[in-house]
């Protein structure tokens, strides 16, 4: 971000209120993986739960998405992609601390290349069987 003109002394409101234990603001969170400051509002979803740049999430939800009842707070890596019947992509997140899995909708501003790389991963790694299927 380009710095503002130095003579502008008025304090910026967004700077001082830090709500969460990780120091995140009420309207944004900092990605635990790539440190990007992410606004909570996201196009196409009710609430954002992963970083649009690296797709990493944080284990804060319990059984119900958005309930924020989980105390784990481990980093959740995006490990896979699945497509719903209507074609919408969902991300599979895996908590690196406790092993919990979760499914989350993608957001309209998620990095397309990161998404594509994730979806390509099984094929890039190579099928665990001979490509010559036994026909």
């Amino acid at each position: 971000m380009p710095r503002r003109k130095p003579q502008q002394r008025r304090p910026q409101r967004r700077k001082d209120v830090l709500h969460g234990p990780g120091g995140e603001r009420g309207d944004a969170f900092r990605c635990t993986n790539c440190r990007l400051d992410v606004p909570l509002t996201a196009p196409g979803t009710a609430h954002r739960n992963h970083c649009p740049h690296c797709l990493t999430s944080l284990h804060v939800d319990g059984r119900i998405p958005g309930d924020r009842r989980e105390t784990c707070r481990g980093r959740m890596a995006a490990v896979g992609v699945t497509a719903r019947r209507d074609g919408e992509w969902l991300l599979i997140h895996h908590c690196l601390a406790c092993g919990k899995l979760s499914v989350n909708r993608i957001a309209g501003d998620d990095n397309a290349l990161t998404l594509l790389r994730l979806a390509m991963r099984p094929l890039a790694a190579g099928p665990p069987f001979s490509a010559q299927l036994a026909l």
Binding site: T82, A83, I106, L123, L133
Partner: peptide
């Protein structure tokens, strides 16, 4: 949700279909 290793005799067609399905309908 659970995660488990695949087995050597798992249906390879279904596995491949699952691997390529998202790519057949990308959101971009």
């Amino acid at each position: 949700l659970t995660s488990n290793p695949i087995c050597g005799d798992d249906n390879q067609f279904i596995l491949m279909r699952m691997a390529v399905r998202p790519l057949a309908q990308p959101p971009f």
